[in-house]
Write a protein that binds this DNA or RNA. Structure first.
Length: 432
RNA sequence: UCCUCGGUAGCUCAAUGGUAGAGCAAGCGGCUGUUAACCGCAAGGUUGGAGGUUCGAGCCCUCCCCGAGGAGCCA
C-alpha cells in the first residue's frame, strides 16, 4: 500500500511532516477559539489542534459538535509536544468528517460491567481493551514462532467431534444431519494421532466446555495450544512448557511495552519468569498446604484458595507433577515408580491467575488404557480409532495444553478473563 | 447448580415508610494550551415485572425476571 495516510503508531517517523491520519474521534475539548481533538486509529491516539481562524467558522463549529467515535480524516503537520497525550500533536489544516456518529453510548466516566458487556462490540475500541487485545495477538504470534522455530508442525484438530475427549465434562451438542455431534473440548486425542504421523505437532484452536462455571477464570469458549511429541516423556514436557511460557513472557515484555504501561502492569514480576520454575510433586504440595493451615489431605484436588496459596509462595509459575491417578484422565500414564500416581503435570500461574497448563505423559499400553476406560465408565466404541494408535507402532509420547486467555489475563493483570478475548462466551453470555 | 449482594434519568450513583436528587453524557451559552478540561443555563423519571401490607411504598412482604461477586469443575 502506498503512503496516502499514516498510522499514529508511526508518528515518531513523521515528525515535522504534513501527513494524513484516518480514524475516529476519541475525545474533544474546547478552550474558546481553540479545539483539541483526540483522534484514534487503532494504533494509538494523537491530539489534533484546530483554531477557528485556519479551519473557518463552519468547519470549526461542526468539529466542536462532532459526536465521539465519528470517523474522520485529518490532515496537518505532526510535531513533538510534551503537553499532548502520547507525546505528539497535529496542527490541523483540515478535518473531513466521514461519518457523523449518533450519540455514543460509552461515555468518558466509568460504566458498570453489565453495560459494557452489552456494548462489547464498542467497548473494544477503548484504550484498555485495545491494549489487552494487542497483547493477545502478540501472545498468539509468539506461540506460533516458538513451535515453528523448533520444527513442530501445525496440526488442526476438528471442532465437530463424535464424542468427548475426557468424557467427564459437559459438552455442547449440535445437530449433525440425522446425528448428534459435539463441539471439541480438547484437540489432544487427535493431536496424539498427529504426533504418530508427524513426530511433533501442535494443535491451536478454540475449545468449548458447557460447564456451568461462573468465575473470573472461566469461559465456555476458549483457545488452547496443545503440543504433542512422540517419544517424549513427562520431563521433556515440563521443560517444553517452561520454555514456552518464558518465551511468551519475553516476547510480550519486549514488544508490548506501551500496552503494559496502559494496563499499569508491573513488568518486574514478569521479567523474573525464566526457567527453571519451581517443581513440586503433588504430595509435597499437599504437605506445604497443610503446613500453611489448609484443610486438605492426599487425594484431594486443589481448589481456588489452595491454588492462590501455592502461587503466593513463589514469584514464578509453579510446576506440580505426579498427581493421584484417580484425579486425572484415563489416558494418563501410570508412574512406574508408584502405581498410585499418574505422570501428569500442571503449571500454576503467579499472582492467583490459576492453572495455565495441564498435561503429561500418555499411556502407551493398549491393555492399560482399556482397563482405564472401563474404570472411568467410558464407552469403548467411540475410542476405537484412538486405541488403534496403541495397536500400530505405539510409542511413549507426551503433551500438554496451555490456556490462551488465562495466560493473557496473567500477563495483562486483568481482573477477569472476559476482557482477554474479543467476544467472550460465558454462562448466560452469548451476546453480542 | 448453590450461597451472597444488587436492579432508581442514556451512564455512574444518592434518597429515616412521608414532595424522587446529584455528577457525567446529550442541548444552549462562555473561555486561545485543554489533559475523564472547567464555568453557567435549561432539560431529563411507569424507581426491573406482578401481586400484597399500609392513611401513605423506591424503601416492608411473596413470587418471577435480569445482573454481579464467590463456591464446585477445569485451561
Amino acid at each position: 500500500m502506498d503512503k496516502r495516510w499514516i498510522y499514529i503508531g508511526d508518528a515518531a517517523k513523521h515528525c515535522g511532516e504534513e501527513v494524513e491520519i484516518r480514524g475516529w474521534l476519541y475525545n474533544r475539548r474546547r478552550k474558546g477559539k481553540l479545539l483539541f481533538l483526540l483522534v484514534r486509529d487503532g494504533t494509538g491516539i494523537v491530539q489534533c489542534i484546530g483554531d477557528e481562524k485556519s479551519l473557518g467558522e463552519e468547519e470549526f463549529s461542526e468539529l466542536d459538535h462532532l459526536p465521539l467515535e465519528s470517523s474522520l480524516i485529518v490532515k496537518g503537520v505532526l510535531k513533538e509536544e510534551k503537553r499532548a497525550p502520547g507525546g505528539f500533536e497535529m496542527n490541523l489544516l483540515s478535518a473531513k468528517v466521514i461519518h457523523k456518529a449518533e450519540e455514543y453510548p460509552i461515555g468518558k466516566k466509568e460504566h458498570g460491567i453489565e453495560f459494557l458487556m452489552k456494548h462489547r462490540h464498542l467497548w473494544i475500541r477503548s484504550k484498555r481493551q485495545v491494549a489487552i487485545l494487542r497483547v493477545r495477538s502478540r501472545v498468539v504470534r509468539s506461540i506460533y514462532d516458538f513451535f515453528f522455530e523448533r520444527g513442530f508442525v501445525l496440526f488442526d484438530a476438528p471442532i465437530l467431534t463424535p464424542t468427548s475427549c475426557e468424557g467427564t465434562t459437559t459438552l455442547f451438542e449440535v445437530n449433525y444431519f440425522d446425528d448428534k455431534a459435539y463441539l471439541t473440548q480438547s484437540g489432544q486425542l487427535y493431536g496424539e494421532a498427529g504426533a504418530m504421523a508427524l513426530g511433533k505437532i501442535f494443535v491451536f484452536g478454540p475449545t468449548f466446555r458447557a460447564e456451568k462455571s461462573k468465575t473470573r477464570k472461566h469461559l465456555t469458549e476458549f483457545w488452547m495450544v496443545e503440543p504433542e511429541v512422540a517419544f517424549a516423556d513427562l520431563n521433556d514436557m515440563i521443560e517444553l512448557g517452561e520454555s514456552l511460557i518464558s518465551h511468551i513472557v519475553r516476547e510480550v515484555v519486549s514488544n508490548c511495552g506501551e500496552e503494559l504501561l496502559t494496563l499499569e502492569r508491573n513488568i518486574d514480576s514478569l521479567r523474573r519468569v525464566e526457567p527453571p520454575f519451581p517443581r513440586m510433586k503433588y504430595e509435597e504440595v499437599v504437605a506445604l498446604l497443610q503446613k500453611k493451615g489448609a484443610d486438605i489431605k492426599w487425594g484431594d484436588d486443589f481448589g481456588a484458595p489452595e491454588e492462590s496459596m501455592i502461587s503466593e509462595s513463589f514469584d514464578k509459575p509453579v510446576v506440580i507433577h505426579r498427581f493421584p491417578k484417580e484425579m486425572k484422565a484415563f489416558y494418563m500414564k501410570e508412574d512406574p515408580e508408584d502405581s498410585r500416581l499418574a505422570l501428569g503435570f500442571d503449571v500454576i500461574a503467579p499472582e492467583g491467575y490459576g492453572e495455565i497448563i495441564g498435561g503429561g505423559q500418555r499411556a502407551d499400553d493398549l491393555n492399560y488404557i482399556l482397563s482405564q476406560i472401563e474404570k472411568h465408565n467410558l464407552p469403548q466404541e467411540v475410542f476405537k480409532w484412538y486405541l488403534d494408535l496403541r495397536r500400530y507402532g505405539s510409542v511413549p509420547h507426551s503433551g500438554f495444553g496451555l490456556g490462551l486467555e488465562r495466560t493473557v489475563a496473567w500477563l495483562c493483570g486483568t481482573e477477569h478473563i472476559r476482557e482477554t478475548i474479543p467476544f467472550p462466551r460465558m454462562l448466560y453470555t452469548l451476546y453480542p
